[in-house]
């Protein structure tokens, strides 16, 4: 069985972002970029499943500008077998629905039965693409997975939900989105980084996929959030109790 792992190139999660002066978006020039952390977890899980011989081939895919090749090479170095880049050229802001439609096309073209992906990208924070992909394919979905058990064509997935942990059973084909606690991703070793340079990376232009993608969302502006007023450092617990009781009257 093949597993498809979509990966996104995003600003490194430890970078403090800056909003452009003209409110058009967030500065990405000369900013450290990385693979979306949730996607790294999805890829790690795929690699572990391959090591247990539960999947045969790991295909990673990224949709975006040409620089996403770096992210794909990183994924190949971690253990993916081959990569696909859907080069969006001058369409940088594809909404989740259009991303899901592109993935749907690739799933069908590659006869994929298993998609393993991050629950959300840490830039848009949308948490939509896996659900939308499952919906378009009419496959079951298991979102926010923190534990996967595979037994032939049967799956048992533990999901992180607000109330605790929910366990569901499902069959392949399936779309699974992963949560942080599923695993701890490995680092790429130098020999693997060298080897990754020889692994296949196919670049396909979005225009040649034959999809008719409509614009659904227009970004009007991106602003920094309102700043909180600077903090006040107190000298004693008494002072704190006084503030909370008498000034803010909240306890």
């Amino acid at each position: 069985m093949k597993v498809l792992v979509p990966v996104k190139r995003v600003i490194d999660p430890y970078v403090k972002i800056r909003v452009n002066q003209d409110l058009s978006g967030v500065q990405t020039e000369q900013v450290k970029m990385a693979m979306n952390p949730f996607d790294e977890i999805a890829l790690e899980e795929a690699i572990r499943l391959k090591e247990k011989k539960l999947v045969d081939e790991i295909i990673i895919i990224s949709i975006g500008e040409s620089k996403s090749q770096e992210t794909l090479r990183h994924g190949l170095a971690l253990g993916a077998d081959r990569a696909i880049l859907i080069d969006t050229e001058n369409k940088p802001n594809l909404c989740s629905l259009n991303i899901a439609k592109i993935l749907q096309k690739i799933v069908q073209d590659e006869s994929i039965e298993f998609v393993l992906m991050g629950k959300q990208a840490i830039d848009g924070d949308n948490n939509q693409t896996p659900q939308m992909l499952a919906s378009l394919l009419d496959w079951p979905q298991a979102t926010y997975a923190s534990l996967l058990k595979i037994n032939g064509k049967k799956l048992e997935i533990t999901r992180e939900v607000d109330a605790g942990l929910e366990v569901i059973n499902a069959d392949f084909p399936i779309v699974i989105s992963v949560d942080l606690r599923l695993n701890t991703p490995r680092y790429a070793s130098l020999p693997n980084i060298m080897q990754a340079k020889n692994k296949p990376l196919a670049i396909k232009k979005l225009a040649f996929l034959g999809l008719s993608l409509k614009e659904h969302i227009q970004i009007v502006k991106v602003e920094p959030p309102a700043q909180r007023k600077g903090g006040e450092i107190l000298n004693s617990v008494d002072e704190l109790v006084h503030k909370l009781k008498s000034v803010d009257k909240i306890i």
Binding site: I11, I17, H216, Q218, P224, P225
Partner: peptide, 16 residues
Amino acid sequence: HPIYAGNAIETVKCLD
């Protein structure tokens, strides 16, 4: 809605 972990606020227009 917030993006980038609440470090930016995005205003969007829905065309649907």
